[in-house]
Amino acid sequence: MDISVVIPLYNEAESLRELHAWIKRVMENHAFSYEVLFIDDGSNDDSWNIILDLARNNPEVRGFKFAKNYGKTAALQTGFNETQGQVVITMDADLQDSPDEIPELYKMITEDGYDLVSGWKQKRYDPITKTLPTKLFNATTRMIHDIPLHDMNCGLKAYNSKVTKNIIIYGEMHRYIPVVAKWSGFGKIGEKVVHHQARKYGHTKFGLERFFNGFLDLLSITFVNKFGKSPMHFFGLFGILSFLGGLAIATYLIGEKLYSIYNHQPYRNVTDNPLFFLGLTAALIGSQMFLAGFLGELLVRNSVKKDEYTIAEKT
Rank of each mutant, 00 (worst) to 15 (best):
Asp2Phe: 10
Ile3Trp: 01
Ser4Cys: 03
Ser4Thr: 06
Val6Cys: 06
Val6Ser: 09
Ile7Asp: 08
Glu12His: 09
Glu12Cys: 04
Glu14Asn: 09
Glu14Asp: 13
Leu16Asn: 05
Trp22Asn: 12
Val26Ser: 00
Ala31Glu: 15
Ala31Trp: 11
Ser33Thr: 14
Asp41Ser: 02
Ser43Trp: 06
Asp46Thr: 09
Trp48Cys: 08
Asn49Thr: 10
Ile50Met: 03
Asp53Ala: 15
Asp53Tyr: 15
Ala55Lys: 15
Ala55Met: 13
Glu60Ile: 00
Val61Lys: 00
Val61Gln: 00
Arg62Ala: 07
Gly63His: 05
Gly63Ser: 08
Phe64Thr: 04
Phe66Asp: 05
Lys68Pro: 06
Lys68Tyr: 11
Lys72Glu: 08
Thr73Ile: 04
Ala75Leu: 07
Thr78Asp: 03
Gly79Lys: 13
Gly85Glu: 11
Gln86Thr: 08
Val87Ile: 06
Val88His: 04
Ile89Glu: 11
Asp92Val: 00
Asp92Thr: 03
Ala93Gly: 10
Asp94Gly: 01
Asp97His: 05
Asp97Ala: 12
Asp97Glu: 10
Pro99Met: 06
Ile102Asp: 01
Pro103Ala: 06
Glu104Leu: 10
Ile109Lys: 00
Ile109Val: 08
Ile109Asn: 01
Thr110Met: 12
Val117Asp: 13
Ser118Arg: 01
Lys121Pro: 05
Ile128Ser: 15
Lys130Asp: 10
Thr131Lys: 12
Leu132Tyr: 11
Phe137Lys: 10
Asn138Gln: 00
Thr140Gln: 04
Arg142Gln: 08
His145Tyr: 05
His145Arg: 02
His150Thr: 13
Met152Pro: 03
Asn153Lys: 11
Cys154Met: 04
Ala158Arg: 01
Tyr159Gln: 06
Ile168Ala: 12
Tyr170Val: 10
Tyr170Phe: 07
Glu172Pro: 02
His174Thr: 02
Ala181Leu: 09
Trp183Gly: 11
Trp183Pro: 00
Trp183Asn: 15
Phe186Leu: 08
Lys188Met: 00
Val194His: 14
Gln197Lys: 04
Arg199Tyr: 04
Lys200Thr: 14
Tyr201Val: 01
Gly202Ile: 03
Thr204Glu: 14
Thr204Val: 11
Thr204Tyr: 10
Lys205Asp: 08
Gly207Ser: 09
Arg210Glu: 03
Phe212Lys: 14
Phe215Arg: 09
Val224Trp: 07
Asn225Met: 03
Asn225Trp: 02
Phe227Tyr: 14
Lys229Ile: 03
Met232Asp: 09
Met232Gln: 12
Met232Ser: 12
Phe235Met: 09
Gly236Ser: 14
Ile240Pro: 06
Leu241His: 04
Phe243Ile: 03
Phe243Cys: 13
Phe243Glu: 05
Gly245Leu: 10
Leu247Pro: 06
Ile249Ala: 02
Ile261Glu: 08
Tyr262Cys: 02
Tyr262Ile: 04
Gln265Val: 11
Asn269Cys: 01
Val270Pro: 01
Val270Asn: 03
Leu275Ala: 07
Gly279His: 11
Phe290Ala: 11
Ala292Val: 13
Gly293Ala: 06
Asn302Val: 03
Tyr309His: 14
Thr310Trp: 13
Thr310Asp: 10
